[in-house]
Amino acid sequence: MERKQFGLGDVVQMKKPHPCGTNAWKVIRMGMDVRIKCTGCEHSVMIPRLEFERKLKKILIRSEEEPES
């Protein structure tokens, strides 16, 4: 099974929509847990990384963060 590569600041689509009707979430924290924020109502949720990877459908917008030299 191929793992989807997501990063901090990416906007992702989850399999189920949020109750506010939006299905786009922004990744705002990564680690053993992933914190995502709804782009519609700005509600944030922290879920375990494995659960997040299982519920992730696709990456909508990749962040364009460049590492500083």
Rank of each mutant, 00 (worst) to 15 (best):
L50R: 14
G9H: 10
Q5R: 15
K4Q: 08
H43K: 15
F52R: 02
C41W: 05
C41E: 06
E51L: 14
G9L: 07
K26E: 06
F52I: 01
K57S: 13
I28E: 01
E53A: 08
M46C: 15
I36Y: 00
K58M: 13
T39W: 04
F52M: 02
L8P: 13
C20V: 08
E53R: 04
R35M: 04
R49C: 09
M46S: 15
K15N: 09
M14C: 05
R54W: 08
D10H: 10
M46G: 15
C38E: 01
G7V: 10
W25M: 07
L50I: 08
E42C: 15
R49I: 11
A24M: 11
E51P: 03
H18A: 11
G21F: 06
W25A: 02
E42R: 14
G31D: 04
M46H: 10
T22V: 13
M14D: 02
T39M: 06
F52C: 03
R49L: 12
I36H: 00
A24G: 09
F6I: 14
C41N: 09
M32N: 06
F52W: 03
R49W: 07
H43P: 08
D10Q: 11
C38N: 00
V45T: 15
K58S: 15
G21V: 09
P48S: 14
T39L: 04
T39S: 04
D10W: 10
K15V: 11
S44D: 15
F6W: 11
K15D: 12
N23R: 07
G31S: 03
K16C: 09
G9R: 12
Q13N: 08
V12M: 06
V12F: 03
I28C: 02
K55P: 04
I36E: 00
Q5W: 06
R29G: 05
H43G: 13
G40D: 05
L50T: 09
W25G: 02
P17A: 11
I36W: 01
E42W: 12
F52P: 02
M14K: 06
M32R: 08
R49V: 12
D10N: 09
F6N: 07
P19Y: 10
G40C: 06
R49Q: 11
R49M: 11
D33R: 05
D10Y: 10
W25E: 02
K37D: 00
K26F: 01
Q13C: 10
D10S: 09
K16S: 13
V45F: 12
C20L: 07
V27Y: 00
V11R: 06
M30F: 00
G7L: 13
C38S: 01
P48E: 11
S44N: 14
C41K: 08
K4F: 06
W25H: 05
E53V: 04
A24Q: 13
E53S: 08
C20G: 09
L56K: 05
T22I: 10
V34H: 01
K57C: 10
